Every structure is written in structure tokens, then in C-alpha cells.
Simulated scan of single mutants.
Amino acid sequence: MDEFAVGDGVTAKGGPMKGLYGTVVWFYEDKDQLLVRFGGTQQMYFTADELERWGA
């Protein structure tokens, strides 16, 4: 996955996490999904097309 790397700041394009700052913490290769952590405890899986870089 070339669009994002572990440690990148991102936000979701839609849904309940839209507009919130998240950090990519893992890339799940088998499903081609990124695990994004929001705050200290909330985390969710997204595909690259569901995310955008923070501040973009």
C-alpha cells in the first residue's frame, strides 16, 4: 500500500470518525485495510479510499 504508512495522520472521509484526527497503526495485508487509532482507545479498519491525509 503506497498511499499511507504506519504513523501517518489521517481522517475518515465519512462515517462517525469523519473530521477526527487518527493515526495509522497497522496495515492488514490480507484484507488490504489500515487500522487507524483515534484518541487513546478507539480504533477501526479502513480501506485506503475511505481515508485522506490529515490537513489535505
Rank of each mutant, 00 (worst) to 15 (best):
M1E: 15
M1P: 07
D2C: 09
E3D: 07
F4Q: 10
V6F: 02
G7H: 10
D8E: 04
G9H: 15
V10F: 00
V10P: 05
T11Y: 10
A12E: 05
A12T: 01
A12F: 01
K13S: 04
K13D: 07
G14E: 15
G14W: 15
G14R: 08
G15S: 07
P16L: 03
P16K: 15
M17R: 15
M17N: 06
M17E: 11
K18D: 09
K18G: 07
G19W: 00
Y21S: 04
Y21H: 13
G22Q: 06
T23C: 03
V24H: 08
V24S: 14
V24K: 11
V24Y: 00
W26E: 08
Y28Q: 14
Y28W: 14
E29P: 13
E29N: 03
D30M: 10
K31F: 04
D32R: 14
L34N: 12
L34K: 12
L35F: 12
L35Q: 14
V36L: 01
V36I: 01
V36T: 04
R37N: 08
F38C: 09
G39W: 06
G40C: 05
G40H: 00
T41Y: 11
Q42R: 09
Q42T: 09
Q43P: 08
Q43K: 14
Q43S: 05
T47D: 13
D49T: 02
D49W: 02
D49N: 14
E50Q: 14
E50I: 15
A56C: 09
A56M: 10
A56V: 02
